[in-house]
Nucleic acid binder design. Structure first.
Lengths: 230, 230
DNA sequence: TCTAATTTATGAGCGTAACTCATCAAAGAA
DNA sequence: TTCTTTGATGAGTTACGCTCATAAATTAGA
């Protein structure tokens, strides 16, 4: 296969994926039809099956590119921020901002992929777990810094944040984006930040003391037996 | 139509719904087939269409009974608990307990109904919003009591709790119930309870003072413009 | 430049599953 | 018993995912 040939094929596949994002984003996976995707991509139905094993395989291909875009943007937006708490706040903002500006993909990710059992075996899910680790690292950094309570398993904190954010995006999509996805951000982050603040110290008044207090309470609760929940 | 006739028809419908819960619970809505449900219910395929407009209509009928069961159990488990914070903790426990003991329905509710746009127009969703209000009332009670910070819109607190719980159930299902759904409950509730505690007071040390502190900060943040997020 | 070989695109045709409808069975009313 | 009404049935229709034989396009060799 020559280089030009490959280019041509890649271009066709890209057209198909682009059309698939639009169609899967506009209606449910079930209601979306291959023929509609083919029409929008301006290829024959059979061509889609030259590039993808089946309809689901096409769906699962979509997050590859989008997850990478998410990661790149995330790293960019976190640059220059030193402390974990500000990184977490920035993460929450970026997460909502990303899906707000990618509503078609948001629908695919939240309403289709997120609840699909087969998706967990795909490369897209592997990429998802990649940036999940980034989030976990920030939380652990905060625990080392003393700015995040360390008597709590970092996975719990991660899931609290992630669960809440995914929930907001999902509700926003189901309400046809009728309200601003970022509207609830400030109060929600305030709530979570307050929750994960080291115990025994009101940070606003006694920021310096909080670190010591946190250290004193290290490993108060049982460590989790099974962290493979994602 | 006579009483006996109606009884007979109701019995058939119940058989169909029972079979549908098993089949929709075992595989995705897409993979589940009407013929399999008909077989399991021991009726002809055509009979299903005497009782339900289509496959989706059958799916949407399922939560009617289960939501009522959820509500009854919830009210029972909340009985005798006076203060809002203990009610919220109990709610979280009951929520996870209910889905742990109803895994087939959990899959239908979390993986199908929760992300289905059409579901929002159904009676099942109306019932869901019914107990959502119960949860909101508990939070508002806590804000009046002074045990829950009232400088925060109650909807935010409700969504934080609900989002996290739904997230746990979803992850648990996608991991084939391989870990204990209740394992994360204690730490998560501790985290949320800490977050929604009135600001400025470490409750463990200065419980009495917290009320006053909370009142002092009433209406600190902007009220939400749009509460119709669910 | 012409030709053979390989890769990519095509769409008619197939299988399957949701759904319909004419017919049958069962129960109640007269 | 006969007529009417309601519920159950499954063969038939339709729509959609998917296959495959064929055509078109591109490359390599002479």
């Amino acid at each position: 296969m020559s280089v030009t040939h490959q280019r041509k094929k890649d271009a066709t596949r890209e057209q198909i994926v682009k059309a698939a994002i639009e169609v899967f984003g506009g209606k449910s996976y079930l209601e979306a039809s291959i023929s509609e995707i083919a029409q929008k991509a301006e290829v024959a139905e059979g061509t889609i099956y030259q590039h993808f094993k089946n309809k689901e395989d096409l769906l699962f291909f979509i997050p590859n590119d989008r997850t990478n875009a998410f990661c790149e943007g995330l790293e960019l937006h976190l640059q220059g921020i030193q402390d974990a708490r500000n990184k977490l706040a920035k993460f929450a903002w970026y997460y909502l901002y990303f899906f707000k500006t990618n509503p078609d993909y948001a629908r695919i990710a939240m309403l289709e992929l997120r609840v699909n059992r087969n998706f967990q075996k795909t490369n897209g899910y592997r990429l998802f777990r990649g940036w999940l680790k980034m989030l976990g690292d920030i939380i652990e950094q905060g625990q080392r810094e003393g700015s995040v309570r360390n008597d709590m398993d970092p996975v719990i904190i991660r899931e609290l944040l992630l669960g809440t954010l995914e929930h907001y995006v999902t509700r926003w999509l189901l309400k046809d984006e009728s309200w601003d996805l970022l509207e609830f951000r400030e109060q929600t982050i305030e709530l979570i930040m307050n929750g994960i603040k080291p115990a025994g110290g009101d940070e606003a008044k006694t920021a310096a003391a909080s670190k010591g207090a946190a250290e004193g309470r290290r490993s108060k609760v049982e460590p989790l037996k099974n962290k493979q929940m994602v």
